[in-house]
């Protein structure tokens, strides 16, 4: 990363951490906090989907992992009394481990076969949540407490959200920081040796296997990182809504995660973030349209894909230096 990119990152952080709260304060649209927090969290899950696109697989199963992550965190918090901030990495890990076992067989599939199987996976997760006793079936797990204080050697790192006067702002800040960390990690992965190997998988799996790349291992690694992100996003989403049901994440959500990546642009790390912002925020803004909301929304999606089949970030505006902001 050069100085210019550091500067851009700094400007971005200033805008989202100082500019946006100020703007919301000034306009009095407090509901935007919830919307933007959701955007930040969903874009983490979309980043995971993007990583599976990066190894050349179409992943429509992220909803399964957000659901698993959400349930893992909810069960740990409500039944074992674990601190929420600890459950966050645990939920991610649980998803990563599960995804290794699911990924090993299904990652052998390609193209639409993989896409369809992952779509089915979302449905499996939902039905499992309905059938298992620990997830409390269709009633779900409700009244999950707000995140508790996190302290290290008596030093408060994150205060108890229940004692804050504005938990919405706290959630927003936490979500944005997580999103930035997640995309930093994604950027690092893409520009590392692992990223180059993944790109070779995307272009030609046989060829890269023939020159000694361990493709099976790489696929599973990328898929489990992707699922980790899904789990973390799901767990934090649940703590905001303070409840989880089997229908919290369903096929539509999985499809939306995939759409976010497409819309932003599959060739750009920041694609899923932009895509999520546009799709989720756009949907929210169109709410004033009443019953025509879905009609306008879907027409805009169709229009966008017909005009810009390679994503918004493929616009020349973003690619002055050529090659794209990779």
């Amino acid at each position: 990363m050069n100085t210019k990119k550091w500067l851009l990152t700094l400007v971005f952080l200033l805008i989202v951490l100082v500019g946006v709260p100020w703007a919301i304060n000034a306009s009095g649209r407090w509901d935007f906090y919830y919307t933007l927090t959701s955007v930040a969290l969903l874009s983490i899950a979309s980043a995971g989907v993007w990583l599976t696109f990066y190894i050349g697989r179409i992943n429509i199963g992220q909803g399964a992992y957000t659901l698993i992550g959400g349930y893992a965190s909810a069960i740990l918090v409500t039944q074992l009394g674990v601190n929420f901030w600890l459950t966050l990495p645990l939920a991610g890990l649980a998803c990563a481990i599960i995804s290794v076992f699911i990924g090993l067989p299904i990652l052998r599939l390609r193209g639409v076969y993989f896409a369809m199987v992952t779509l089915v996976l979302t449905e499996v997760a939902r039905l499992t949540a309905l059938a298992l006793p620990i997830t409390n079936g269709a009633k779900g797990i409700v009244s999950i407490p707000l995140p508790a204080e996190l302290s290290l050697f008596g030093l408060t790192i994150i205060p108890d959200f229940a004692t804050l006067e504005n938990p919405k702002l706290a959630f927003y800040i936490a979500a944005v920081i997580m999103m930035v960390l997640c995309y930093a990690a994604l950027y690092r992965i893409v520009n590392s040796r692992l990223g180059h190997l993944c790109r070779s998988l995307q272009q030609n799996e046989e060829l890269s296997a023939s020159i000694g790349v361990n493709t099976a291992y790489l696929r599973v690694i990328a898929y489990s990182i992707s699922s980790f992100m899904g789990g973390v996003a799901g767990a934090s989403f649940v703590s905001i809504s303070q409840s989880i049901y089997p229908s919290t994440f369903q096929v539509v959500d999985s499809v939306n995660f995939m759409l976010n990546c497409f819309l932003g642009g599959l060739g750009y790390v920041l694609g899923p973030m932009l895509g999520t912002l546009m799709l989720y925020f756009g949907w929210d803004l169109l709410f004033t349209m009443g019953k025509y909301q879905l009609l306008i929304y879907s027409s805009l999606i169709i229009l966008l894909i017909v005009l810009l089949p390679n994503g918004i970030l493929s616009l020349p505006l973003f690619n002055k230096r050529g090659g794209g902001p990779k």
Partner: peptide, 19 residues
Amino acid sequence: KREESTMLLAAGIAFFLDA
């Protein structure tokens, strides 16, 4: 550039038909 873009279109059409 990538064939999969048609999936976004198909999903968009699904939403549109729903509406």
